[in-house]
């Protein structure tokens, strides 16, 4: 019997819910030792701009969805990941991870998505406040998503680092433009396939593979990006801080090698990408002195 020829997968990028090839037409070859694994897209500045346009376009609807709805959608994402456990594990292994570790990483990643999914309709109860002002006003503060967030994903973990940084961004209603790990890009694209089939609206997550040093500056300079999450071991820090000045992007930096720890499970990671809005309204005074206006 003739040996069956494997069907090799083309790993394409993820923009606006679709999987286009990179506009650059360029690629880099991912290898395990000397064995080629896949040809990975080298995304261009044009791809990045398209991704930002898609993210901005998706923002209003995603931020406007109910917290309950966003929570269910992220939970659905975890369900879809569960169904693809073996694929994720196999991909991590093909990129050099040993089986046990790969298994652990995949399961932890799924659990982490569920962790953040649950925060959706709780975050404002923890971080919001009614402020007892000394005038006759009702005054409250609540958190709102910032808009479009650029994520420079952790370099040393393909899946766990990505979900640990991406979920806190999108759960509150932000849209993300992700620069995937250069070393471990395959899980990012497979995660994109999960996202594409999890009721996450197109454009909420956009994932680009390629060379970070070709793209980071364009992302940090883009005038329609509101914040940058640099989770890449402090690399690019100064460059991003300078590039982000033009429109005063918020910059959050987390230097972690390991994302295993449950220390990464906290709501402050979500609040980092939210703005505090404070609203005032007069209270009519029936008796007493002074006007609310």
């Amino acid at each position: 019997m003739a040996t069956r020829i494997d069907v090799l997968k083309t790993y394409k990028i993820f923009i606006g819910g679709k999987f286009p090839r990179t506009e650059s037409g360029r690629f880099y070859q991912l290898k395990n030792g000397k064995t080629p694994i896949a040809n990975v897209c080298l995304s261009s500045r044009k791809d990045l701009r398209n991704a930002v346009v898609a993210a901005r376009g998706a923002f209003e609807k995603w931020a406007g969805a109910t917290a309950y709805n966003r929570s269910q959608i992220l939970y659905r994402m975890a369900e879809m990941m569960e169904g693809r456990k073996e694929q994720f594990t196999a991909e991590l292994m093909s990129q050099g991870m040993e089986k046990n570790k790969a298994n652990q990483e995949v399961m932890k990643s799924i659990d982490r998505v569920i962790y953040f999914a649950g925060w959706s309709d709780k975050i404002n109860q923890v971080f919001g406040s009614v402020n007892p002002v000394a005038t006759s006003h009702f005054n409250f503060s609540s958190l709102e998503p910032m808009g479009v967030v650029g994520l420079i994903a952790p370099e040393n973990t393909g899946l766990l680092g990505l979900v640990s940084t991406l979920c806190p961004i999108i759960i509150s209603g932000n849209c993300g433009v992700v620069l995937a790990s250069e070393k471990y890009p395959l899980s990012s694209i497979t995660l994109a396939e999960v996202i594409a089939t999890s009721d996450v609206p197109g454009g909420v997550v956009n994932i680009l593979t390629g060379k970070k040093d070709e793209l980071v500056s364009h992302l940090a300079k883009h005038m329609d990006v509101n914040a940058i999450y640099l989770a890449s071991n402090g690399e690019f820090k100064k460059q991003i801080q300078e590039d982000a000045i033009q429109n005063l992007k918020r910059i959050i930096i987390r230097d972690n090698d390991s994302w295993d720890d449950e220390d990464h499970e906290h709501p402050y990671a979500i609040a980092d990408f939210m703005e505090t809005k404070t609203t005032w309204h007069p209270i009519e005074i029936i008796s007493g002195s002074g006007s609310g206006y």
Binding site: V133, H137, R250, T276, T279, W280, G292
Partner: peptide, 27 residues
């Protein structure tokens, strides 16, 4: 898209009330 919104009032301040902006109004 603003950090402080006054409804039927304006320019009110209080120590208990967080103040600050979105976008290029600061962080």
């Amino acid at each position: 898209r603003a950090g402080v919104v006054w409804a039927n009032t304006y320019n009110k301040f209080d120590p208990t009330s967080p103040f600050g902006g979105y976008k290029e109004s600061g962080h």
